[in-house]
Design a protein around this nucleic acid. Sequence first.
DNA 1: GGCAAGCGGTAGACAGTGTCTACGCGACGG
DNA 2: CCGTCGCGTAGACACTGTCTACCGCTTGCC
Lengths: 186, 186
Amino acid sequence: MQPGDLETRLVAAGVELLAEAGTDALSLREIARRAGVSHGAPRRYFPTHQALLAAIAREGYRKLGTVVAETIGESGAQPRAALLALARRYVDFARNEPGMFALMFRHDLLRGNNIGLREQSTPLFGVLVKLLTQARLAQPTAGAAALWAALHGIAQLWHWGTLQVVTGFDTPEPLLVAAVDAHLKG
Amino acid sequence: MQPGDLETRLVAAGVELLAEAGTDALSLREIARRAGVSHGAPRRYFPTHQALLAAIAREGYRKLGTVVAETIGESGAQPRAALLALARRYVDFARNEPGMFALMFRHDLLRGNNIGLREQSTPLFGVLVKLLTQARLAQPTAGAAALWAALHGIAQLWHWGTLQVVTGFDTPEPLLVAAVDAHLKG
DNA sequence: GGCAAGCGGTAGACAGTGTCTACGCGACGG
DNA sequence: CCGTCGCGTAGACACTGTCTACCGCTTGCC
């Protein structure tokens, strides 16, 4: 048996498989095969297939969280520049890890609190609120939520190709600028 | 055999089933059972399960299109009022038909052009562009795309409960106002 | 009128899935 | 030495999507 307990090995195998073959390939049995165990083994650690998927998605939230933290660290205190950098990273994440991005926002995983959604997303949201407060926004909470939703919507619709189709643009940059500037002027 | 050819009956059965039991229940065989035919019958009209799902999703786009058209008809020529009405309808659609909303934006259905995405979404987008042009926006195309993405993001994240968790709000209204006003001032 | 052809649906097979259950092996404590 | 128990195996079950062979019924044609 290889190093590491099976629980973490299963999640790691899932992340690998997700990156290589996409969401559809993430069957319970295939993950188990990747980890070198029988199809019944995951049940010891994850009561259901969805629970395993949720654990894999949680890994994505962790990664996105560190990306955000890095971005905030790199970019200066200028709210606009920081927000734009953040927006680009968000869209890049969706593009570079499409499978993970799709998995992270599957509604059926979010119901119940399979993922510690509150724990995972609150700090990210806090960063936005802080930046908008620095920009002296009247209602930073509503603004931050709206901006987050806007960035998420751009990432998702761009990822699907919808926005390319309707706008004819070949980069999401103008949309990011429009979204950030719009919310900063609110 | 009941009225209507099997193709439309299958789609109708799918829409029903989707509303009653959600996305997961939309198996090929269950839809066929609902329509009163054997599991092999759908194959005559839809080469694959995904094709049938895409046809069902297309029905959702049609419905959303008519809702948008109605909203524009009802509300006056005031861009802000019209946009807010539109935003509320969009979020309401996501809340009232969660299964359909989830199906419509499943990325695996969007790849390839299973759904006539361009045909379905371009008119909706055109409405937004027109309203923003009326509001004398500098770059109506980018603004309309960003606003659409924002509304979609709010509808989706609200639907999942994410925004309730981080903001503590119990209605998406402040977010809609923030999004619309922000993009109007751009 | 008889008959071939083909449309539209049935039925069974096949590999694969998630979940459940019974079993087994190996280490560890008494 | 033996029981216990954690951890993984292996098989069964119902169900899925796809493929293929079949079959009845209508339709067109000579």
